[in-house]
């Protein structure tokens, strides 16, 4: 079910964003806009800058040049001084804004010193200030959603990769993010565990209006949940369009080549 692209302020906007690591240019003057509630999947060869886009939005990296906006206000930068000149955002500016963004990582990154339930309640309790009961109730709902209601006391390292990733999804959702970033969330999983994670994400996509940015090589999943696919190549968007068009009738030879290579 395609979602109408809502007019008005964009959820995410990249303004001529460049990111360099040393002398390697990962993003090269990228312009990108994502509407509220839109589900966008980034595809392309590895090293083409897809993950960097998510990491910039999660403030795990800083832009080399250009500005990232979220909800129509600067995010990578903040206005400073009487002229409102944009300077790199500091921790204080970022703290409240970053809470609207959540991320699920390729390697799950659960907290090994906390139980499954405590992994999910940690941030709602200590960042949002929920009391223990409230946070636990929210966490149990989400663990139910991801099919792990019976694992709340388990130690994260005792779970399968697929179960760990589902906990990580519940943990991210517990903060009620408006923008959810999914960074190759099934790439570290054994093939037989991929489906359980993607099924959970299909449910999340169908049951919420969270804006989602997704990096994946699972084209069937991308086709199901995405409103739009972006094909990246060398730090730039090579082509974009609805999944049907981009997957079935790509315009560029490089896109065809890439799609053949991952089948």
């Amino acid at each position: 079910m395609p979602i109408e692209t809502v007019p008005g302020p964009e959820k995410v906007r990249f303004d001529r964003v460049t990111k360099r690591f040393g002398d390697q240019t990962v993003l090269d003057g990228l312009d990108l806009a994502v509407a509220p509630g839109e589900r966008v999947t980034l595809i392309g060869p590895s090293g083409s800058g897809k993950t960097t886009i998510l990491r910039l939005l999660m403030t795990l990296e800083r832009v080399t040049d250009g500005v990232v906006h979220v909800d129509g206000e600067p995010f990578s930068h903040m206005p400073s001084g009487p002229g409102g000149k944009l300077v790199p955002a500091d921790e204080r500016y970022l703290a409240p804004r970053r809470r609207r963004v959540g991320m699920v990582f390729q390697q799950f990154n659960l907290f090994p010193h906390l139980s499954v339930l405590a992994n999910v309640t940690e941030a709602p309790r200590h960042v949002l200030g929920l009391d223990a009961d409230e946070a636990a109730a929210r966490a149990r709902d989400l663990l139910g959603l991801v099919g792990l209601a019976d694992k709340e006391d388990a130690h994260p390292t005792r779970l399968s990769g697929g179960q760990q990733q589902r906990v990580a999804i519940a943990r991210a959702l517990a903060m009620r993010p408006e923008l959810l970033l999914l960074d190759e969330v099934t790439s570290a999983l054994d093939p037989e565990l991929v489906a359980e994670v993607l099924d959970v994400l299909r449910d999340v996509a169908a049951g919420t209006d969270i804006t989602m940015l997704c990096v994946t090589h699972e084209m069937a999943f991308a086709r199901d949940v995405s409103d739009r696919l972006l094909m990246f190549d060398r730090g730039r968007v090579l082509e974009s369009g609805p999944p049907g068009k981009l997957l079935d009738a790509p315009e560029h030879e490089r896109t065809r080549e890439f799609l053949r290579s991952i089948r």
């Binding site: 999660m58 809470r99 959540g102 390697q107 990154n109 940690e122 941030a123």
Partner: peptide
């Protein structure tokens, strides 16, 4: 990656 997961949950440096 542990710090990054904490940042992704909105946790500040002290937390």
């Amino acid at each position: 990656a542990q710090t990054e997961a904490a940042i992704a949950l909105g946790m500040g440096p002290g937390l």
